[in-house]
Amino acid sequence: MTDITHETVEHYAKLANLAFDPADAELLARQLGSILSHVEKIAELNLDDVPATRFVLPQEPAHREDEVRPSLGAEQALANAPDTESHHFLVPKVINVK
């Protein structure tokens, strides 16, 4: 079984902007270890010369003309925001933070 420690969990949690309490980190370490032990099965295939599939359609992703079209107005775009001020999204202060 792949050994995942709670330190590993905490490292990747940080990369993903998540945080876990110690009990959850221990539980996740065990569960991720178990999942990785299973999915590591794909390593037994030698696929060095096989191209990776990123898009299953026999076409390139479609493009349309770059023309201006109606889109959400400022009011609508801000309507779901937790905090706003005069047509801006409001967030905690990020400059001159002590």
Partner: peptide, 12 residues
């Protein structure tokens, strides 16, 4: 080892 290999498995 994980993501890229999985995308290759997908090809197969």
């Amino acid at each position: 080892g994980y993501y890229l290999q999985a995308q290759k498995v997908r090809t197969k």
